[in-house]
Each structure stands twice: as structure tokens, then as C-alpha cells.
């Protein structure tokens, strides 16, 4: 597998024997390795660049603590900056709005929207005692509406009855109406997957937003996404103004650099992560854990923190 960043930096910087401040040359040498590590983790190239610039600023001239090696010092600075860029934890779905609060799920095909809809609905029902309605606006993919119906059965969450031949926009209106009449606290709209360059479908998505006035618009994206993460996040954000991100398939062995890319280009918080196919496989986002994962490293940071 990957050589850890610490090992790489060690061989470059350990000649410095841990005294004094980091010089411009030391930092540049280290940042070349940081760049490699981030690219291998699928962080988008432009984001890698702005990230290394920020680290350079902080690292040049930084005092190296006596008890640790310069390589470890750089890793700590890199890690801290990564955590900061990934954003604060605990920013979860906001339900602070008049009922029914509309939550709209968007994203590319197969990213995990329908599954995540079920997971979020189950969580709100069980943990917050909310009355939730789920509605499938996916009239395109074979059996997509049936999928959400079955998930509703599995989780015991209500789903909007399917009416054949209704357009996604009409279903959205009907869902909000039904939630009002039914006294639901939350209505979650599961939309069809779409590529961000499919113009008619991007227009449709904006229309759905217009008629349903969502309080939250969550972009559901695969954590295994490569460099395209910035394009898709930017495009979805431009067209509907997302309020947060959900990263799925975090139970895989990917390094998850897409998290940093999408957070960096949209500035929107990562609200939840999907960690499995089952309906309870949804977790809060912890920037520190994802930072460790992107850098592919273990306990170096705690080592530095103790120093």
C-alpha cells in the first residue's frame, strides 16, 4: 500500500535533527511529498494547490519542538490545516423551520440518494421523534419508486403513495401538500440521479426546488469519487445552492480525498457520512478522522500533540 506521509517526510527532513525553525527549502521539499500524498488520495488538483500554499505559509519559520522530528512537525501542520479546511463537526441537518421542513436529496446516478433518504428518515424518526414522509421523485430509473417504498416498509417511515405518470415537479408539490395535511414534521424528496451536464435534468432539479422550497438541499456524493468531484459539486451548487454534503461508501477502503475537494470548492459543510448499506449505517462527520484517512496515517498526530 501507500508509504505513509510521515515515512516519506522523515527521509527528507530528518537530517535537520530537530532544532530551530523550518526553512523555506525544507518546507518546499516536504510539500512535494504532501502534494503526492494528496493526489494519491484523490484530492482535486486545484485544491491540492491552494492547500499546499496555505501550509507553506504556516510552516516556513515555524519553530520545531525539541522533542519531535521536523518531519513530524510538518505532518502536524499539514494535518491541522486539513482538519480546518474540512470544517467543523456537529453541523447536522437543520430542522429549524416551519413544518413540514422540506429536505431535498440530489446527486449523480448511483451515489446513494435513495438509501441515504431512508437512513436519514429513520434517524430523525428514532432519535428526534419526528414524523417523516419520504417521496420518490425518480420517475426515470426502473423501480426507483418501488425501492423507496420498500425502504419505507423496512424502516417504518411513511412514503408518498405512487401515482403513475406524474412528473417529478408534480410529485414534489403533492408531497409537500400531503405532509401538510398529514401533520408531518419533515418531508424528504428523493430525486433521480443526474449528471451535472444534463441540461434538461438540471432545469428539472431547479424547478423541483422552486415548487417545494427546501430548507435543506443535500448533495449525496460517493466518497470514492476522483478528480471530477469539484466539477460535480460546483455544478450542483451553482444550480440549486446546496446546503450540505453527504458522503457515502465511507465504509470502503478509499482515501476519501473527494471530501476535501467538495468542501473546499463549495464551502458547504459535510453533514453526514454513509458507512454501509443497512439503514442504520449513517454517522456524523468527524474532520479529524477523515484527515487521518486522507493522509493515510495512524497515531503521529497524537504523538505530536503529547509533545
Amino acid at each position: 500500500m501507500f508509504e505513509s506521509l510521515q515515512e516519506r517526510l522523515g527521509s527528507i527532513l530528518n537530517g535537520l535533527t530537530g532544532r530551530g525553525a523550518l526553512s523555506e527549502a525544507d518546507v518546499s521539499a516536504a510539500l512535494r511529498e504532501v502534494r503526492r500524498a494528496l493526489i494519491e488520495a484523490d484530492v482535486a488538483l486545484d485544491v491540492v494547490r491552494s492547500f499546499t500554499d496555505r501550509v507553506r505559509e504556516k510552516a516556513v519559520g515555524a519553530e520545531v519542538l525539541k522533542s519531535i522530528k521536523p518531519g513530524q512537525m510538518v505532518v502536524k501542520i499539514v494535518h491541522d490545516e486539513l482538519v480546518e479546511m474540512l470544517g467543523a463537526e456537529g453541523e447536522t441537518i437543520d430542522l429549524n423551520a416551519p413544518a413540514p421542513v422540506v429536505v431535498m436529496m440530489v446527486g449523480l446516478q448511483g451515489s446513494g440518494k435513495t438509501t441515504t433518504t431512508g437512513k436519514i428518515a429513520k434517524r430523525m424518526t428514532e432519535r428526534q421523534g419526528k414524523k417523516v414522509l419520504m417521496a420518490s421523485l425518480d420517475t426515470r430509473r426502473p423501480a426507483a419508486q418501488e425501492q423507496l417504498r420498500q425502504i419505507g416498509e423496512q424502516t417504518g417511515v411513511a412514503t408518498l403513495p405512487v401515482v403513475p405518470d406524474q412528473s417529478p415537479v408534480d410529485i414534489a408539490k403533492r408531497a409537500v401538500q400531503a405532509a401538510k395535511l398529514g401533520g408531518h414534521d419533515v418531508v424528504i424528496l428523493d430525486t433521480a440521479g443526474r449528471t451535472h451536464i444534463d441540461e434538461p435534468l438540471m432545469v428539472e432539479m431547479a424547478d423541483i426546488k422552486r415548487v417545494s422550497n427546501p430548507h435543506e438541499i443535500l448533495l449525496v456524493a460517493d466518497s470514492l469519487t476522483g478528480q471530477d468531484a469539484v466539477n460535480l459539486a460546483n455544478n450542483f451548487n451553482d444550480r440549486v445552492g446546496i446546503t450540505g454534503l453527504v458522503l457515502t461508501r465511507m465504509d470502503g477502503d478509499g482515501r476519501g480525498g473527494a471530501a476535501l475537494s467538495m468542501r473546499a470548492v463549495t464551502g458547504k459543510p459535510i453533514k453526514l457520512i454513509g458507512v454501509g448499506e443497512k439503514m442504520d449505517a449513517l454517522e456524523e462527520f468527524h474532520p479529524k478522522r477523515i484527515a487521518d484517512r486522507i493522509l493515510g496515517m495512524g497515531d503521529i498526530v497524537s504523538l505530536v500533540e503529547r509533545a
Binding site: 484523490d42 460517493d222 470502503g252 477502503d253 478509499g254 482515501r255
Partner: peptide
Amino acid sequence: DATTGQNALN
């Protein structure tokens, strides 16, 4: 999936 990054190799 074409949108997958380096993990596809694995």
C-alpha cells in the same frame, strides 16, 4: 464507474 478515482484500481 468512470467517476471513481484511484480506488478503482483496488
